[in-house]
Write a protein that binds this DNA or RNA. Structure first.
Length: 440
RNA sequence: GCGAAUGUGGUGAAGCGGUUUAACACAAUCGGCUGUGAACCGAUCAUGCGCGGGUUCAAGUCCCGUCAUUCGCCCCA
C-alpha cells in the first residue's frame, strides 16, 4: 500500500523549503518597513465569511472552495484567500477602534479546488497585506508601490504592472447596466459562462477568453466613460503617485478581477519567466469598499494585495535568481579509527560545539573518503577530525572543505579557537555570497 | 467542469508480443585500502514495468477501464 499526496497538494522539503522560508522572511521584513504588523487568521472560517465577503458571484466561491460540515453541523471552509478572513478578524476583535488605518500583513496556506497546473496548486501559500480604514489614493498608490518594490527586493527586474479602475458603487452600477444592455443583444452568440455572468457580474464578461466573445467585448462600453467624477479624479491621483515614484505601469481597461469586493483601483503584477513559463499573475490586489460593512463592521474601505509564494519561488528559479547557500553546516565531525571511545569523545565534542553556537553533525566512523563525501553533501564548511592520537594530545584537526587548508587546534581552548575560524567572516559587506551571516 | 499527453529502481532512462536472468548511465552502500577527500577494481541495489480486467500458446510491449502526474481551457496567487 502506498500513498500519494492528496491531489494538488505537494511536499516541500530541503532547499526548496529554505528558499521559501527566505522569500517569506524577506517579504515580511519588507512589510515591516511599511509599518505593517503580522495577522495570523485561522485556516478556516464559517462558509458565510467567504460567500458574503469574497462574493457569491466569484468563481472562487461558486466552484473552488473546500467546504464541509464539521461534527457540529456547521458549514466551514478552508480559506481560499485571506482578505475576507482577515477583515472578519478585524471586525471580531473590533480593531477598527484603534488608530486607523490598520496595516496588517499575512502569510500562509490557502486552498482552492481547481485543476492543478503549472504554478497552480490546491494548497498554496500566499503573502499579502491589507490596509484598512483610510480612504486615500495615497494609500492605494503606496500599496501598489509596495508590491512592486517587494518583488524588486526579491531580485526581480522586469515586473509589469497592470492597473484599472472599477469606479465607486455609483459608477459600477451605471456601468453594469450599460454592459447588460450592450451584451444582452449578443447573448445568442456568446458562451455559456457569459450567460451566467451577465446577471451575476457583467464586468466579468470583459475578460472572457472565448475569441468570439472578445470580439463582441471590444465594442462594449468602456468603464472610463462611466466613472464618476470622484472616481476618475481618484484614479488619476493614484497614477500620479506612481509616476512620481517612477513605477512602470500599464492601464488595462479589461482588468476586472474575479473577487466581488473590489472597487476603484485594481491591479495585477506579472513577471516574465526567462525559462518561458507562464505562471499567471504573481500578485493581484486592489481597493475594496463595502467589505468591512458586509462582514458586520463599520463602513470602512481598504486596500491590499496578495502574492503567490510558490509562483515567486518558481520564477526566482527560472530566472536564475535563486541564492545558493555557500554552506549549511559549520562543522562535520569525523571520528577516525572507528573505536567506540573515539566516537563517544567526538560526540561529546560535537555537543559542546553546538552549545557554543555552531551547527554541527557527525559521522559514525567509516572510510575517510566516505566521510568527506558526507561532509560535502551536507555542505559543511569545516571537517573536524579527531582520532586516538589527537585525543591523547588534546588537539583536533580542522580542515576547510573548500580550500583544503588544515590547522590543528587546542581542545582546551575550543571556544576561542573556533571563534578565530569565523572571525574573518565578520565583515559588514553587502555581498550576498559573503559568509558573514554566521551566528544569524 | 472540459480537452490532450504521459506512467518501467533513489535519478535519467533502454526495451515496443517470445534468448531480457528488465540493458546502460548517474547516485548510493560495502569491500580491495584502520588515519585525510582523486583515480581504479570488485560486489550489492526493480520477486517486477501505476492499478484492474481482456486479447494471445506467450504481454512493460496490443485493447478496455481506472488511478496518478503533467500540460492546455476556465479561473486565479
Amino acid at each position: 500500500m502506498s500513498f500519494s499526496p492528496v491531489k494538488g497538494m505537494h511536499d516541500i522539503y530541503g532547499e526548496d523549503a529554505s528558499e521559501m522560508e527566505e522569500v517569506t522572511n524577506l517579504l515580511k521584513e519588507f512589510a515591516k518597513m511599511y509599518a505593517y504588523k503580522e495577522f495570523i487568521p485561522p485556516i478556516m472560517e464559517y462558509t458565510d465569511v467567504f460567500s458574503r465577503g469574497t462574493g457569491e458571484s466569484s468563481d472562487i466561491v461558486r466552484k473552488e472552495m473546500y467546504t464541509f460540515l464539521d461534527k457540529g453541523n456547521r458549514s466551514v471552509t478552508l480559506r481560499p484567500e485571506f482578505t475576507a478572513g482577515l477583515i472578519r478578524g478585524v471586525v471580531s476583535n473590533k480593531l477598527y477602534a484603534e488608530d486607523l488605518p490598520l496595516k496588517y500583513f499575512y502569510c500562509g496556506p490557502a486552498f482552492r479546488y481547481e485543476r492543478p497546473q503549472l504554478g497552480r496548486y490546491r494548497q498554496f501559500n500566499q503573502f499579502g497585506v491589507e490596509c484598512v480604514g483610510a480612504d486615500s489614493p495615497l494609500l492605494d498608490a503606496e500599496t501598489i508601490i509596495m508590491a512592486v518594490q517587494s518583488l524588486c527586493v526579491l531580485g526581480f527586474e522586469n515586473v509589469s504592472v497592470k492597473i484599472n479602475s472599477l469606479g465607486d458603487e455609483e459608477s459600477r452600477k451605471a456601468y453594469r447596466e450599460a454592459l447588460k444592455k450592450y451584451f444582452s443583444s449578443y447573448m445568442d452568440e456568446m458562451c455559456e459562462d457569459c450567460h451566467e455572468r451577465i446577471n451575476l457580474n457583467p464586468l466579468r464578461i470583459l475578460d472572457c477568453k472565448v475569441e468570439h466573445d472578445q470580439e463582441i467585448a471590444k465594442g462594449a462600453p468602456k468603464i472610463k466613460d462611466y466613472l464618476s467624477e470622484a472616481s476618475e479624479k481618484r484614479f488619476y491621483k493614484t497614477i500620479s503617485y506612481l509616476n512620481d515614484m517612477e513605477i512602470d505601469y500599464e492601464i488595462d481597461e479589461n482588468l476586472v478581477r474575479g473577487l466581488d469586493y473590489y472597487s476603484e483601483i485594481v491591479f495585477e503584477i506579472h513577471v516574465k519567466s526567462q525559462a518561458g513559463n507562464d505562471y499567471g499573475a504573481v500578485c493581484g490586489g486592489g481597493h475594496y469598499g463595502g467589505l468591512v460593512k458586509e462582514l458586520g463592521g463599520p463602513d470602512l474601505p481598504g486596500v491590499g494585495f496578495a502574492m503567490g509564494v510558490e509562483r515567486i519561488v518558481s520564477l526566482l528559479k527560472d530566472n536564475g535568481l535563486r541564492k545558493e547557500q555557500p554552506y549549511l553546516l559549520d562543522f562535520f565531525f569525523m571520528p577516525v579509527g572507528g573505536d567506540e571511545e573515539v566516537i563517544n569523545s567526538v560526540f561529546y565534542l560535537m555537543q559542546t560545539t553546538r552549545l557554543l553556537g555552531y551547527s554541527a553533525d557527525m559521522a559514525e566512523g567509516g572510510k575517510f573518503s566516505s566521510m568527506f563525501k558526507k561532509a560535502e553533501r551536507k555542505k559543511a564548511k569545516f571537517a573536524f577530525i579527531v582520532g586516538t592520537d589527537e585525543l591523547e594530545k588534546g588537539v583536533a584537526n580542522i580542515k576547510n572543505i573548500e580550500t583544503q587548508e588544515q590547522i590543528t587546534i587546542d581542545l582546551n581552548k575550543l571556544d576561542e579557537e573556533l571563534d578565530k575560524l569565523f572571525e574573518h567572516d565578520e565583515c559588514e559587506c553587502d555581498d550576498e555570497n559573503c559568509e558573514c551571516h554566521h551566528g544569524a
